[in-house]
């Protein structure tokens, strides 16, 4: 599995996103720019300039028409994917840590940072998935997190719920129409921040990654815990692989937390676990610092990781990956094709 190294960012990566067809990869970093790349060969397609602060989050709508971004300059921006033009700016009082489109691209959520005088919030905008349309200034919804600020959030199936991960290690389920808090569950160790939430393709369950060194699979319907993956390092990101029942985890101790030895160079690894059996099944080395973000091609052909080292590494899955199966899965044959 020889990776393609994408060199284009000058500072740590914060998020990576594939388009729905997996052909284009978007990356954002603390260097204030967004890059678009062809995932097949790593060729850079273009950049999106305009933010005046570190970028924390990006997302692309399901029709690859609009790109949304959230940054430390207290704005959410909407971009025309094709031309790279910024078509909308929403201003906030604090930094924007996370943005995500719902499954049909008609709504966008944004998670705002907590700061003196301002509580953390999750806001929702109605979106017209057309680059020429006038986008609204009005918020369709504002959820205020008065217990523990949200660090990440995602849309469930049918855009029914907004699922949020919090600084205190808990997960919340909100009614996506009314904003009512329906449930809160201490999924991770107390005060171990949840760094990432990624939904399954059908958005009925999701995976969390936390500083407590665990990644967990929970039901979006009732937050019931389904599976958990134990590692020996603080986790920043977790993704699910379609077509194979695996999960990919990224993390690593920050440089200041480890004894600096040259032997650690390039040893930050993406970890693969079996989604159902919870066993670790493989590791991929390469980064020179913690993995801040991992993403999987929605068609399951490969994955990409973005590091604190400023690099994006794109991997295409090969034979051994596709052939990996437990005996009990083989027994089930066709039935176990879609897990």
């Amino acid at each position: 599995m020889r990776p393609i190294l994408l060199q284009g960012h000058e500072r740590s990566l914060t998020q990576i996103k594939y388009t729905k067809d997996g052909d284009i990869l978007f990356s954002c970093a603390k260097d204030q720019i967004i890059c678009a790349w062809f995932s097949a060969n790593g060729e850079r397609l273009g950049t999106y300039h305009g933010h005046q602060g570190a970028l924390w989050s990006i997302d692309v709508d399901p029709s690859t028409t609009l790109l949304a971004s959230g940054a430390a300059d207290n704005t959410v921006r909407l971009w025309d994917v094709r031309t790279g033009k910024c078509i909308k700016v929403w201003d906030f009082n604090t930094a924007v840590k996370r943005v995500e489109f719902n499954e049909d691209g008609t709504k966008l959520l944004a998670v705002t940072e907590k700061r003196m005088g301002f509580l953390g919030t999750i806001v929702v905008f109605d979106i017209v998935p057309d680059v020429d349309a006038e986008q609204t200034n009005e918020r369709a919804l504002t959820i205020t997190c008065d217990e523990s600020k949200a660090t990440v959030a995602a849309w469930s199936y049918l855009s029914k719920y907004i699922i949020a991960g919090h600084e205190d290690g808990s997960v919340s389920q909100y009614d996506a129409k009314t904003g009512e808090l329906l449930d809160n569950f201490q999924a991770h160790e107390v005060d171990m921040e949840i760094k990432d939430i990624q939904m399954s393709p059908d958005r009925t369950y999701f995976i969390t990654a936390s500083k407590d060194k665990f990644a967990k699979l929970l039901s979006a319907r009732d937050l019931s815990p389904l599976k958990q993956y134990a590692t020996e390092t603080s986790l920043n990101s977790a993704a699910l692989t379609p077509k194979k029942p695996f999960v990919v985890l990224g993390g690593g101790q920050a440089a200041m937390d480890v004894t600096k030895t040259s032997s650690r160079q390039g040893k930050f690894e993406a970890r693969f676990y079996h989604k159902i059996f919870e066993d670790e099944i493989g590791r991929v080395k390469g980064h020179f610092g913690p993995l801040n973000t991992v993403a999987v091609d929605p068609l399951g052909r490969g994955y990409a990781s973005g590091g604190e080292d400023g690099y994006v590494r794109v991997h295409h899955f090969e034979g051994a990956y596709w052939g990996f199966q437990y005996e009990v899965e083989r027994e089930k044959g066709e039935e176990s094709a879609d897990l």
Binding site: L226, P245, I276, F277, Y326, V328, E331, K332, D338, L339
Partner: peptide, 13 residues
């Protein structure tokens, strides 16, 4: 045990 986990997961899905 794996057989049980697999059936359980398939039933859940």
């Amino acid at each position: 045990e794996r057989r049980r986990l697999l059936s359980e997961w398939m039933a859940y899905l």
